[in-house]
Design a protein around this nucleic acid. Structure first.
Lengths: 188, 188
DNA sequence: GCATTATAAGTGAACGCTCACTCACAACAA
DNA sequence: TTGTTGTGAGTGAGCGTTCACTTATAATGC
């Protein structure tokens, strides 16, 4: 039998690019097939539907990223080290695969309500990191939801700025600055 | 002649709600007409196309918001006062008309490339406020693009958190906290 | 080695359906 | 009457999806 893994990979790559640049609804299966150099029908050998392609692309990668963040938490003992490593990971992810990062963290808000398990959610991982730091007295106590989103804003918005050409790449060069900003905001 | 202004207002209101909750592409003209209590054809008495409705809704309101922010800059002499008033304005806007705020600042990224005049762009207004403060020595000098986006992240991401139910409304109650966070980040 | 068989991968014209948009007409106000 | 607003069945382009068919390759028996 023939090996379709290369085709699948090409579909992934082109789908991400088009979904991010044009939007999911604005990308037709015809567009996608043409960009990937395959026939329309071929896409349905690999995915049940356009929608399942979108969902698979989102959920699997979202889960993996959340698990990477979780692994970082376990690897570092205290809050400043965890924060620094987490932010570096965000920056590295953006620089390595900007389309995937944008798809997961900046554009696919519609998919978020379908994510069920909290452990597979990057936002949840960050909030848990903050709650843990508050319990240990490493940062000042206040609304964890607010603190998590302040922190998240300091990471995600620079990524947006980079997308719009308001900030020079790579994002990683600002990792240390962003980390310091987070620590100041959380009054460490 | 008959007065269509009430109809136009109803279209605005329902369109915003559906565009934000479902997405622009996922909202059909039929949906819209039904929600607004009018026939499909009536929508075309007021707008050339669905697309022109989206663009009109975005550009006119985007412009007005940018001008309100500009007015605030002129009203306050120094950076801390400007920042505080600007952030309060963001929060008030979100609390007053969450659908419009979300449409302009959180979901309609696709429309941004079409905005031409810099003066009618909220992001640009904030960046200019920062550049001005750097020149006066009110805050530490560094990349204005990065600084503007760090600040913006501290305002927009809490709004996102509120949308997802991770933060309790109203947003205005956090205005002071967010302002303080901005000042810390900018090392005032 | 060399046929034979099995099966997954790839194809693209065709299909049913939904969509944004149109238009002939009605209702209303000036 | 005259111009504006409202109507909703009608239209055709474009969408996601299907399916009968072809092609490539792995597995099997000789």
């Amino acid at each position: 039998m023939r090996d379709g893994r290369a085709t699948r990979q090409k579909i992934h790559q082109e789908a991400l690019k088009q979904f991010v640049e044009k939007g999911v609804a604005e990308t037709t299966v015809r567009d996608l097939a043409h960009a990937a150099g395959i026939a329309e029908g071929t896409l349905y050998r690999h995915y049940e539907s356009k929608d399942s392609l979108v969902w698979d692309l989102f959920s699997s990668n979202y889960k993996v990223f959340a698990q990477q963040l979780t692994a970082i938490q376990k690897r570092h003992p205290n809050f400043p080290a965890r924060l620094s490593a987490t932010i570096s990971e965000f920056c590295r992810f953006f620089d390595d695969d900007p389309m995937l990062f944008r798809f997961l963290m900046l554009t696919q808000h519609q998919a978020l309500p379908r994510v069920e398990n909290d452990d597979d959610n990057p936002v949840e991982v960050i909030q848990k990191m903050i709650v843990s730091a508050m319990k240990r007295g490493e940062i000042a106590k206040r609304s964890p939801g607010l603190a998590a989103n302040l922190l998240l804003g300091l990471v995600l918005q620079p990524a947006v700025g980079l997308v719009y050409g308001r900030i020079k790449p790579p994002l990683s060069q600002y990792a240390e600055t962003i980390t310091q900003a987070c620590l100041r905001v959380l009054k460490v």
